[in-house]
Simulated assay, not measured.
Amino acid sequence: MAASTLPDAVLFDRDGTLVVDVPYNGDPERVRPMPGARAAVARLRGLGVPVGVVSNQSGVGRGLLTRRQVQAVRRRVDALFGPFALWAVCPHGPDAGCGCRKPAPGLVLAACERLGAAPRRTVVVGDIGADVQAARAAGARSVLVPTPVTRPEEIEAAEVSAPDLPEAVRLILDPDGLPGTPGGRGPTGGDPGPGGAP
């Protein structure tokens, strides 16, 4: 595959996307990969595409989790998938007014900067509308992978959706799979549920 058609980076939501959503989980033993997730991440890594995680963890701001617990879960995810190139985590509650909490673009922009990735050549993969909206606000592309918590209006509003992570990665790697894909067709892409935005 030509390097010019590969994204600069792919950023995954954590809960409900990479791993089964356990609300406000601080226990590494409860971490379970979503079906096909490890193979999907491995395929991108095999092609040299940097992969990162962008995750809202408002349990910290709400006093339901400690930063140490979030780090323990992160280590478990890295152990299951292999270390991610970066983790960008928002610990704030929904009323904090921060610029990092999805659907704001802060996490995506920070991840792109740290990876040296152009937002327009970066893809965000998540399970709810906040993930898609954060990508759009950052100037990145997105793929929605719905779960039972994904609202119908979020699915309808998503430009691209896939039934699972392996199909999402297939679309990402297909030069014609996503609007705005370098070398592909289509225009440049220019209240959250519990899955990825607790």
Score class of each variant (00 low, 15 high):
M1Q: 04
M1E: 06
M1W: 04
A2S: 15
A3I: 11
S4I: 08
V10S: 02
V10Q: 05
D15V: 00
T17V: 01
T17W: 01
V22W: 06
P23S: 06
Y24R: 12
D27R: 08
P28K: 05
R32M: 10
P33N: 04
M34Q: 02
M34E: 07
M34W: 00
P35C: 03
G36Y: 14
G36L: 14
R38W: 03
A42F: 08
L44E: 12
L44I: 05
L47F: 06
V49M: 01
P50K: 02
V51R: 03
G52H: 13
G52N: 11
V53T: 06
V54H: 02
S55F: 05
S58M: 08
L64C: 03
L65H: 01
T66N: 01
T66P: 01
R67P: 03
V70C: 00
A72I: 01
V73R: 00
V73T: 00
R76Q: 15
L80F: 07
L86G: 01
W87A: 15
A88H: 13
V89S: 13
C90W: 05
P91L: 13
P91C: 10
P91I: 08
P94M: 09
P94W: 07
D95C: 11
D95P: 08
A96K: 05
G97A: 10
G99D: 14
G99N: 10
C100Y: 06
R101P: 00
K102Q: 02
P105C: 15
L107W: 12
V108L: 02
V108T: 06
E113I: 03
L115F: 05
G116P: 03
A118F: 05
V124S: 01
V125W: 12
D127V: 08
I128E: 14
A130R: 04
D131E: 08
A137T: 07
A138M: 07
A140F: 00
A140K: 02
S142W: 10
V143W: 10
L144S: 15
V145K: 07
V145L: 09
P146K: 06
P148I: 11
V149N: 14
T150Q: 06
T150G: 03
P152G: 13
E156S: 00
A158Q: 14
D164C: 04
L165C: 04
E167C: 02
R170N: 15
R170G: 15
R170Q: 14
L171P: 09
I172N: 06
I172Q: 07
D174V: 06
D176R: 12
G177Y: 03
G180A: 04
P182D: 01
G184Q: 09
G184W: 03
G184S: 05
G184F: 03
P187H: 14
P187V: 14
P187Y: 11
T188D: 03
D191C: 04
P194L: 10
A197N: 02
